[in-house]
Amino acid sequence: MLPAEAKEFTGFKARELPEGEYLVPGHRACQGCGAALAIRMVTKALGNRIIIANATGCIEIISSAFPQTAWAVPWIHVAFENAAAVASGIEAALKVLMRKGKIKKEKITVLAVAGDGGTADIGLQALSGALERGHDFIYICLDNEAYMNTGIQRSSSTPYGARTTTSPPGKKGIGQVTWKKNVAMIAAAHSIPYVATVCPTYYLDLMNKVKKASLITGPAYIHCLSPCPTGWRYGTNLTIKIGRLAVETGVFPLYEIVDGRVKITHPIRRLKPVKDYLQLQGRFRHLGDEHIHEIQERVNKEVAKLIALEKFGSFYKTALSYF
């Protein structure tokens, strides 16, 4: 159930966005980095009463090279696969220290940040454990669809057909041969109170969902498509446009799942062809029409599935409809 505070939250206004910056200029992200932009928006939405547990990855290394830090909020990095576990410890400590009167009682949002490798691959177990245990925290996956920090290797979140340095197209290969793992739905299967997908192109949607996630008690999972000019091979000025096309083609639909109820938050009934999205990116340049068609079919199916989920109203009703 949504607490009253969350129900009262009517959303940020484009003209009155919070001015605070908590990932300050001087960080070392690549030009046009979608992940740095996304985390800037996330922290803007949350304000400074937060503690961040960051997994190893792009955002970790670009923000914390000794002796300087780009963080203006408390932040900790422990390892690659355990952001959700470290966040669990922080949340538990805050809870008990406040209860015992050792620190002052207030609402502090615990935010775990990880990339797609740290989430869909090596960190999946720790994430599942933390969601299942019900810690009051937000987990955000900044999904740039490969291990960009180590030099663009494929992850289980890399889309079908994409070229990476470990899924190279060749005489016998087409690039990535597996379909993107759907971690948002895996998170939803834990029956947590809040799951959402976001993309920094839709900044109000992103900030509103993050804020809502912080107002809900219990675990919230947010999956953020974070376009990456370096790994996806497109001009650094196109990050926002690529994100827009990912949503408009249905490749990355925006939705939220509140208490199991699916709501698509950006219309996906009239979609642009996926080719519009793929052709702007060097990682898909080798794909022929046949493979693009295959991807289109898959996207159509996934979108239809999502629309069906929304129509039935909830996972629960979907399940009932089979009987």
Binding site: V24, P25, G26, R28, P67
Partner: peptide, 27 residues
């Protein structure tokens, strides 16, 4: 890198206690 110090002056665990100091780094 300015402000590089010896281990005795280093914060515990090499923690950085000046928030947002990366602003010194002009990109």
């Amino acid at each position: 890198i300015d402000a590089i110090m010896g281990w005795k002056k280093l914060n515990l665990g090499a923690a950085i206690t000046e928030p947002g100091s990366a602003s010194l780094f002009k990109t």
